[in-house]
Write a protein that binds this DNA or RNA. Structure first.
Length: 424
RNA sequence: GCGGGCGUCGCCAAGUGGUUAAGGCAGCGGCUUGUGGCGCCGCUAUACGGGGGUUCGAAUCCCCUCGCUCGCCCCA
């Protein structure tokens, strides 16, 4: 036997058994977006590396060490998209969509990050995301969050926590960052080693340290809230009031810092306690500077992304929906040269009439075929042997009924019987 | 990139140095050459992730390697 091949690390197959769950998820999301007046956009999986470098930020982990990047045959620097927002913004700019007014868009599909796989994290993973472009109102943040929240509720998920924070404007954050770094440098000796490393690479992250000693120390650190302008404060309170008015529960988390550079003002995460270490199901926020940074007109925007693998883990735990695809309506048992040819034609006609029909192609003994018919889960079997083929009739057998007798019917009558309108 | 755990048939799983490596499920064949669900019998070509070593002898011990998995970092 030849050596077997495997999918690449972190690239998983979704087998037929799991597909019903995924399709359910996608259907619920589509319906949610339809109701919310959000249109779908599809962008390429492959983009110029520069798009992500400029959009997400050179210094972030996503860009610095997690991208699937390579040179194509024309020596162009290409990257498999690690997230959706940058591509959507690029497309919106490229096609001047903002000239038509604000854009309410959603996207879905695979994303790629070169990370060590673990629970709820793959190298190829799937996101569904929302972007509201051209709307700067605090109400847009609230609406975006509400759409995500309602989508998760429509999936039957509860025990979710919405965490909320504000990052202020870029200037607010830069001012605070400098202040925080000064303070951290003064207390360098007291920090845990992990946090010490982050003082210069990602100082805001230190606030989120899991080390108890560091957390205690941080009580005396400068607060992001104090560095915010009055306008930023005002804006954040409008977001909070909006959520309260919609009765969407949330928790203020001053340590919540989004990793990507483009965020400003509202930042939020929806987490579950049933996922292990990778608890974030949905993450998002406002990114008012991104469109301009990518060469478009200054445009406020807010959005989020949902991680589908994590949702699937939660749905599978809850057994919210059946995981199997439905059985066929009719199983065609057939044997004999003339019968087999006729069965193929009949199967096609029944399918054209809208029935889900499985044709037994084994040519095996009737007994075997009935066994398979039974296991297929089909409620009915059509039996076609050479005598039926000669007479132009089909034996219709009720596989599930108590006293279901076999009936000899014209093939045209089969669809009627299955539809519950027997015609004798 | 760094830690921990694990790798026996398609799936679950016994076996921890010694004649032919249990068992269950699934699959296939037969009992039953045109009627299934139950039952019985049999099969899945020497299957212990791969390579090397120790030993009279290894799935069982050692080394290396690959893979999976959980966690760190980071993120959805």
């Amino acid at each position: 036997m030849a050596e077997t091949l495997q999918s690449l690390r972190g690239m998983v197959d979704l087998l037929p058994e799991q597909i019903a769950l995924w399709q359910h998820l996608e259907a619920v999301a589509r319906e949610q977006f339809r109701r919310a007046g959000v249109r779908e956009i599809r962008t390429p999986l492959l983009e110029a590396t520069e798009l992500f470098a400029r959009g997400i930020g050179e210094a972030t982990d996503v860009v610095g060490k997690e991208m699937y990047s390579f040179l194509d045959r024309g020596e162009r620097a290409c990257t498999l998209r690690p997230e959706g927002t940058a591509s959507v913004v690029r497309a919106v700019i490229q096609h001047s969509l903002l000239g038509q007014g604000p854009q309410r868009l959603w996207y879905g599909g695979p994303m790629f990050r070169y990370e060590r796989p673990q629970k709820g994290r793959q190298r190829q993973f799937h996101q569904i995301g929302l972007e509201l472009l051209g709307i700067g109102e605090a109400r847009a943040d609230v609406e975006a969050i509400a759409i995500a929240w309602d989508l998760l509720e429509a999936l039957g998920l509860d025990e979710l926590t919405l965490e909320l924070n504000t990052l202020g404007t870029g200037e607010d954050r830069a001012r605070y960052r400098a202040e925080l770094v000064r303070w951290l440098e003064a207390h360098l000796e007291e920090l845990d080693p992990d946090s010490r490393n982050r003082v210069h690479t990602n100082p805001l992250r230190v606030l989120d340290s899991k080390d108890a000693g560091t957390q205690a120390l941080l009580a005396g650190a400068p607060q992001l809230g104090d560095a915010l302008s009055g306008e930023s404060h005002e804006r954040f309170s409008r977001v909070r009031q909006g959520l309260e008015a919609l009765e969407i529960p949330f928790r203020i988390n001053p340590c919540l810092v989004r990793g990507l550079d483009y965020y400003s003002h509202t930042a939020f995460e929806i987490t579950s306690t049933h996922l292990g270490a990778q608890a974030t199901v949905c993450g998002g926020g406002r990114y008012d500077g991104l469109v301009e940074q990518l060469g478009g007109p200054a445009t406020p925007a807010v959005g989020w992304a949902l991680g589908l693998e994590r949702l699937v883990l939660l749905l599978a735990q809850r057994q919210t929906i059946p995981a199997n695809s439905p059985p066929p309506d009719l199983y065609v048992v057939n044997r004999g040269e003339a019968a087999e040819a006729w069965a193929l034609a009949l199967t096609r006609n029944w399918r054209l009439a809208g029935l889900a029909v499985e044709l037994d192609l084994s040519g095996a003994a009737f007994g075997k075929q009935f066994k398979r018919a039974d296991r297929s889960g089909a409620p009915w079997a059509a039996v076609i042997g050479d005598s039926e083929a000669a007479e132009g009739v089909v034996v219709l057998k009720d596989l599930r009924g108590e006293a279901g007798e076999d009936r000899r019917l014209k093939p045209e009558a089969v669809a009627e019987v299955l539809a519950g309108r027997p015609q004798l």
